[in-house]
């Protein structure tokens, strides 16, 4: 069972967001980037499957700030290989990134065919594509997204996959492997790894580098402008310390007949 887990950095939504000087992109100069949450679930699901069935997990990412730490963390968590795709422009759209992935994966030594390519899904910065769907189409592999549970039957080379619908309903699907899955949630929360183990991985582990192809994808959309939406328009904001706020909220509850 060989699995590739693809990781991506996104801005942390708790930060203050500002528009860049061009007026049509996010200013990421001072923003903290974190791993897309669902990618951590993809990696976790990959590690769980490897523990069950044997095989290997390769964590792969396009170059980005702090990506080395992320890849070493993946090694510390139990990934067997870490691969960084270098030579990528900054601020790629999802469509270009997916196209690079589709062109690069087949060129990574001893990587494909892997039975599963697990990605996150619905990253917060997807404006012009969904990476795993595009990747699957280009690699001509079956695809399913919003996945929250994967069981593999090695004897039939199939995966039984749970996909989320609305109202807590899930659909069970069967996919022929190899396949690409966009993971929404792993069956367990992503594991924690102590800093000491990450440091050890940094000393002993190795990040393999492959170069991105030069041919880039022509953009199909244009962002005219980007704005920070006005959020506080409707809410009456309460000031003071926690006790003062609590007292004021109590009054609101009484006024509205809720207490």
């Amino acid at each position: 069972m060989n699995i590739v887990a693809i990781l991506k950095m996104v801005p942390d939504v708790v930060e203050e967001f500002e528009v860049a000087a061009d007026g049509k992109s996010l200013d990421i100069e001072f923003l903290r980037l974190i791993v897309n949450e669902r990618d951590e679930h993809a990696l976790e699901q990959a590690l769980i499957l490897k523990e069950l069935l044997g095989g290997s997990v390769t964590a792969l990412a396009l170059d980005a700030p702090d990506i080395d730490d992320v890849l070493f963390t993946a090694l510390a968590k139990g990934a067997d290989r870490a691969v960084k795709v270098t030579g990528v422009e900054e601020g790629l759209t999802t469509r270009s990134a997916a196209s690079i992935l589709a062109q690069t994966l087949p060129n990574v030594p001893d990587l494909l065919p892997a039975e599963l390519i697990l990605t996150g899904c619905q990253a917060i910065d997807d404006i012009d594509a969904q990476a795993p769907a595009l990747l699957a189409r280009r690699l001509q592999l079956p695809y399913l997204g919003l996945v929250s549970g994967v069981e593999v039957d090695a004897s039939t080379n199939t995966a039984k996959v749970a996909k989320e619908f609305a109202g807590g309903v899930r659909g069970e699907f069967e996919l022929t492997l190899p396949a690409v899955l966009g993971i929404q949630a792993a069956e367990k929360p992503p594991r924690y790894v102590p800093v000491a183990k990450v440091r050890a991985a940094m000393k002993e582990g190795e990040i393999e580098e492959v170069t991105a192809p030069v041919a880039s994808e022509a953009a199909l959309i244009d962002i005219i402008e980007m704005n920070v939406p006005e959020v506080a328009g409707r809410a009456e904001m309460l000031e003071g310390d926690a006790d003062e706020i609590a007292a004021r909220l109590c009054d609101v509850l009484v006024e509205r007949g809720l207490l």
Partner: peptide, 15 residues
């Protein structure tokens, strides 16, 4: 379009 979990919005056109 709403991006970044609602923290940004963008005006966008297709080509």
């Amino acid at each position: 379009c709403v991006l970044y979990g609602g923290k940004m919005e963008a005006k966008v056109v297709g080509r």
